[in-house]
């Protein structure tokens, strides 16, 4: 029972998550000859949810609307759901850690804040050619210089905005 509890209820130690995530890189190559990556699949979602079928980039790059990338995205959502169910944390919550606990903004402003951040993530990932999984995990594991550089600037950007948000809205608390 201890093992089941460690896997499904208690938070994992860093190395357990690292091992599972890291193993995805060779496993996806072995089974599908495909690189680990999530953000490219958001182009499929654009094609599904937004009027974008006439945009050249969508037309040429996303010929198959419901490709494996959409299934990967759905899988990750289901994985989060499964984790919440098994650990007994299932339910819709408006909490987002210290941000909602300390900033005390009305829900509409919180929504705008996370939405704007999401726009930067989506736009930035496409211009950079990948995200944390494609560049930082897959790319660096294959010692790609472009991925090492991209990751350095991911982290610089994150340090800048996280510290601005902390000092402006979270009272410097941590």
């Amino acid at each position: 029972m201890f093992i089941l509890r460690s896997i499904f209820v208690d938070p994992w130690p860093f190395w357990a998550g690292g091992i599972v995530i890291g193993l995805l890189v060779p496993l996806l190559y072995y089974y599908f000859n495909t690189a680990l990556g999530v953000s490219t699949g958001y182009g499929n979602l654009v094609k599904i949810f937004l009027p974008a079928k006439n945009l050249q980039w969508i037309k040429t790059k996303y010929t198959e609307t419901y490709s494996w990338r959409v299934y990967f995205i759905i899988g990750i959502i289901l994985g989060g759901l499964l984790s919440a169910i098994l650990s007994g944390n299932l339910g819709i919550t408006t909490e987002m850690g210290r941000f909602t606990a300390i900033a005390g903004w009305p829900a509409v402003l919180n929504a705008v804040f996370f939405f704007v951040g999401g726009i930067l993530l989506g736009l930035g990932a496409r211009i950079a050619g990948g995200c944390t999984s494609g560049h930082s995990i897959h790319g660096i594991a294959n010692l790609h210089i472009s991925s090492i550089l991209a990751t350095i600037f991911f982290i610089i950007g994150g340090i800048i905005t996280a510290n601005i948000v902390r000092s402006l809205f979270l009272g410097g608390a941590w």
Partner: peptide, 29 residues
């Protein structure tokens, strides 16, 4: 682009993969 992505990462506390897990966990924002 990487810098823009980082700005979004630091604001939302999420990236394209982890935000999907957040949605599955029921985190509204």
């Amino acid at each position: 682009g990487a810098l823009l992505f980082g700005f979004g990462w630091g604001i939302t506390g999420a990236c394209p993969g982890t935000v999907l897990a957040q949605v599955g966990e029921g985190k509204l924002f």
